[in-house]
Design a protein around this nucleic acid. Structure first.
Length: 342
DNA sequence: AATCCGGGGGC
DNA sequence: GCCCCAGGATT
């Protein structure tokens, strides 16, 4: 057997004995996967840990058991159900994709067609093709990047090394059991071949691993340096009347796009907020919320309304404060709402 | 090729 | 605090 073929068979053998049990996963040898559940889980798992996804996956599949059910749901219901999971363009694309696929009578079964669907990039299209449809596809996520960079001692820093890594992943991907192979690589990267502390003594590929042979596999993959995150300041406005609070809908694109929110002063990654309140009258300081986003940190001051000029309010809705949990506020504004009621 | 886009867990 | 995570879309 060739060296690359040996890697796949050793890994699959390891997977048969050590596969993680995950809510969206069919165990090895456990039968057919449901493409809807595979797709839904893969989208939720984009840049998101399995622990964070689990409760959302349970809630979504309970509420919308099929892609037809999801396709029929109002977009705002899906957005609210996604609240707290982050990267909200995923939720908008989820609805768009569900409606498209339901209209087509089901998911396309090959990678190239899957790749055309909204919210499916190179990774997700390959993962669905392999896991849901058993197609041979080269599935490369952050786990696979790490395992492959170590296995072949690839020193070039990411993201420049992407092509070399993909080529090596292609070379070791088997024709059969491509879905199990992909999940096995991810399990290996998530458990044994972990970021800080690779457990080479437990690894089924240790004999083939060039990174281990060279010593210090934990240094791989090498990553380019990151930019410093700027600190931005902004204000959110708590306007309360008759046990209700004034909420707005954020624009469809950009930060927290399409999500329900407190009115704010236009803070952004590129600069501080204006400090301007949505209506005139008296305001008092209600404290500060600190929140980290992927590319900047935010200090969000909370201003609490003490006036009566409610007629000046523009577009929005009065939301019962007792039901604030159901408003689907992203975490930043959920924190601010808790502060306002404290 | 860079940049924008969330949030939470682990150390 | 810092790094990371079953990435995709846009520019």
């Amino acid at each position: 057997m060739s060296a690359t073929g040996s890697i796949a068979s050793k890994l699959l053998d390891w997977y048969d004995r050590n596969a993680r049990r995950l809510p969206w996963r069919v165990p090895p040898g456990g039968g057919e996967a449901d493409p809807y559940r595979v797709w839904l889980s893969e989208v939720m798992l984009q840049q998101t840990t399995t622990a964070a996804v689990a409760p959302y996956f349970a809630a979504f599949t309970e509420r919308w058991p099929t892609i037809e059910a999801l396709a029929a749901a109002p977009e705002e219901d899906v957005m609210a159900a996604w609240a707290g999971l982050g990267y909200y363009s995923r939720a908008r694309n989820l609805v768009k994709c569900a409606r498209q696929v339901a209209g087509m009578g089901g998911f396309p079964k090959n990678e190239a067609e899957l790749r055309k669907l909204p919210g499916l990039g190179d990774y997700t299209a390959a993962a669905v093709a392999a896991i849901a449809f058993g197609q041979r596809a080269v599935v490369v996520d952050a786990n696979v990047e790490r395992v492959v960079a170590r296995l072949f001692a690839i020193d070039e820093p990411l993201p420049g090394a992407r092509k070399a890594i993909r080529d090596k992943a292609d070379a070791i991907t088997p024709d059969k059991r491509a879905g199990d192979f992909a999940q096995a690589m991810m399990d290996l990267g998530a458990t044994t071949c972990s970021v800080r502390d690779p457990q080479c003594l437990l690894c089924p590929l240790s004999a083939e691993c060039e990174g281990r042979a060279k010593g210090d596999p934990a240094r791989l993959p090498v990553k380019a340096g990151k930019k410093a995150k700027p600190l931005r300041q902004g204000t959110a406005f708590w306007i309360e009347r008759d046990a209700k609070v004034w909420l707005v809908r954020r624009p469809g694109k950009g930060m927290l796009g399409g999500m329900r929110a407190l009115p704010d002063d236009g803070w952004a990654a590129s600069g501080d907020g204006s400090g301007d309140a949505p209506i005139g009258g008296g305001w008092r300081a209600g404290g500060v919320v600190r929140h980290g986003f992927s590319h900047f940190d935010l200090e969000l001051g909370l201003a609490i309304y003490a006036g009566e000029r409610f007629a000046e309010l523009g577009e929005g809705e009065w939301w019962p404060i007792a039901d604030i949990e159901e408003a689907g506020l992203p975490t930043l504004f959920a924190k601010a709402a808790r502060l306002a009621q404290a």
